[in-house]
Amino acid sequence: MRPDTYAYYPGCTLHSTAKEYDVSARLVCHKLGIKLQELENWTCCGASSAHTTNELLSIALPARELQAAEEMGLPLAVACALCFSRLKHSAYELADKEKLDLVNELLGKEFHNTTEVVHLLKVLYEERDAMTVSRPLSSLKIACYYGCLLVRPQEIVDLDDVENPQIMDQLMERLGAVTVDWGFKTECCGASLPLTKPEMVLKLSHRILSQAKQAGADCVAVACPMCHNNLDAYQKDMKRKYSDKFELPVLYFTQLAGLALGFSPKQLLLDKHFTSPLPMLRDKGLADAGIAIKV
């Protein structure tokens, strides 16, 4: 039996730059009868920064959230790929009893490391056969982009193949879409470096987008707020730097699922992207006419 209730850890970005991910995820889950109970008073997982500079914090910060979910007795659903990765790593490290004791001492709590961490992509993938598709995405060619943290390292996150993962593709195909076979599903987009190394993010993200475009995609589907930001928000700069002619909308997989399940683009906050998907969706007959594009 698949659980119908999950503890839910949105993570910092889903409350700010990636709020459309949060909103669409909640809508889709609600429609499918999956209850997401947001962890009360959740705090940051430490992201790349803790793990880059401080081993103890990189384990203890996610452990705090794992402990909260354990107390609720629920599996923990995570939307952000970075949070997912950090939570999984922490749970992996805490299989070491010594580290677990140390973390319990730091947190002042009793944690047994029993929380099952699942990514929302896996949750929806498991539910795919139960979905009632009211607006099939049949006119849409999607390049599914998984990024790094969702799939690597396989022995810790255990989600899908590291070079050619399939579950997002299969989910999108279930929703009626055509997915493209391409070689950049798990190449890095530049991750947390847009502030510090913007030119690097531009180069890496541009390579991913042009590969998706070459493969014939109408849009890119993502499952990570960092990937989304890097691929979506810098396309103007890319145009200037690489004199590209194309724009390629980048959507969260939850937004695409929401469209297929009948939600309106507005409800799914599809007007919040830097590279608007609305003209493309309208061309494909997937956006109800009359939605104003606000910039």
Binding site: C12, N41, W42, T43, C44, S49, T53, S192, T196, K197
Partner: peptide, 23 residues
């Protein structure tokens, strides 16, 4: 890479200050 190190340091400071990161 001073900038990257600074970024990570600030990131952690913000977590310490308010629990979450205010972008």
């Amino acid at each position: 890479e001073k900038d990257i190190a600074l970024f990570h340091q600030l990131f952690l400071t913000l977590i310490k200050r308010s629990g979450r990161v205010h972008e």
